[in-house]
Design a protein around this nucleic acid. Sequence first.
DNA 1: CCAGGAAGTTCCAAAAAATGGAACTTAAGT
DNA 2: ACTTAAGTTCCATTTTTTGGAACTTCCTGG
Lengths: 261, 261
Amino acid sequence: MTILSAAADVLRCFSSTRHDVTVTDLVALLGMPKSNASRLLRSMRDEGFLETIGDSKRYRPSLLLNQVGQLYRFAASLIDRADAVVGSISDRIGHTGYISVRRGEEIIGVTAHPGRHALRVVTAIGDRIPAFASSTGRALLARLTDDEVRALYPAGFTAPSETAPRDMDELLARLARVRGAGFAESHDEAVRGVRAISIAVGDPATGDEVALCISFPAATVEPAERLAIIRSLGEGAAEIAALTQDKRFFPLNPSIPETAP
Amino acid sequence: MTILSAAADVLRCFSSTRHDVTVTDLVALLGMPKSNASRLLRSMRDEGFLETIGDSKRYRPSLLLNQVGQLYRFAASLIDRADAVVGSISDRIGHTGYISVRRGEEIIGVTAHPGRHALRVVTAIGDRIPAFASSTGRALLARLTDDEVRALYPAGFTAPSETAPRDMDELLARLARVRGAGFAESHDEAVRGVRAISIAVGDPATGDEVALCISFPAATVEPAERLAIIRSLGEGAAEIAALTQDKRFFPLNPSIPETAP
DNA sequence: CCAGGAAGTTCCAAAAAATGGAACTTAAGT
DNA sequence: ACTTAAGTTCCATTTTTTGGAACTTCCTGG
């Protein structure tokens, strides 16, 4: 057990609901002796990973981490590009847009553009959701072969909602339809009353893959607007795919199905 | 020498001009044996601090650092509030706005809102500039006592431009005028032809202090618009100061001087 | 204003990890 | 295929980390 892994565990304690930690928090969250927790937090502060809030005993991420973290978006230029596409669509139509990446069997939101409408979908950046049970997740999983998808879930999975795939066969069938249609869609899945349209794109040069997603309340969006959203996302994603020479990209099928693929 | 400090040094190698590092970079930049550099980068990747680009030997900051770094502005909620104020002013008037913090005798940009005008000021966030030679820096230094400012520059300083203070006496005189006027201003200082207006505000509960700044080309901005910018910044900063009960805040003096304080 | 308890820090010897030089392997250029 | 640069692995030595317990500090309520 190197101290680096302990330090990484500390960083993982931070979340959108926990902006700072104390010695006691670490003891509770990581089960480490409080002597270690005390010294670890102090070392991390001394080395510049954390800073103390005022002169209290609360620690928060440091400016250094903020700055280094900012570089991620430029280093990963695919994210930058995808974010620009989603941002402009979101600005134009007023619904919430975001882009996500897959880490194993989980999807993580990376950037978000909140919508302008009174009734809008709010997403928390950094939250993790299961890949198979979201449109962004299925858009990304569709880029894998069926065998790779099976290998990802050696023990199968349990559907968290009515409209999510119930088992591997249903998931693979839906992924096939995603590949055919060129987009993925969810309805009432993570949140009731919410629809989401997602398209994934990758950069073979770096191996990065991201999902572009527009999310909106099902009740207020007419079929015509849904079509417009799908076409905008498809165009933007196709441009990126052309730029990165993404061979695994599934272009939008001109005949867009009315039911979620 | 703990490995944490070596890891922090690695993070400090990243910058707006260096988005990724290799073993050789580390040897050159930090002067460490390449055996250490090799193992350190691998450990940092294994623990989640870094990720490799594709399957190359180039390392860049990880998603984890990006996410934890993003939390900084929420953990230091003063930054978030200040950013909202500067963002709305920047949106309204179209000039570049940004917020900065002080670390010792240096000022670091934390967030930026690029302007809309064809002639706009572009700031690189994360870059460091000397505190005494910028409006943001003087706005923040004005919150210190004269003795504290002197202690910050035990060996004095050298003015990097014509309009920057030449010595400690001149700096202290300008800080006194900043306190009286309630805002700091620079002209041709870091960049020729550029003016900047800054106001600092703090949160006594956390000890955080930030500077709100609007930056614009001197040639295209009339005195009336300058006044409007100063008043907007003053109002926004005053609201934050009221919220945090910042006792060291210097409110805007109703009679705004025409020459830079 | 003081007792009691919770939160945080320091101490120590045992256990584990880091160090750096050199040998070795892999990748890249000619 | 040859040469060189870049990166990785090995190993004995040195340094850091660990975790229990004692100690200090900071609150909270009587």
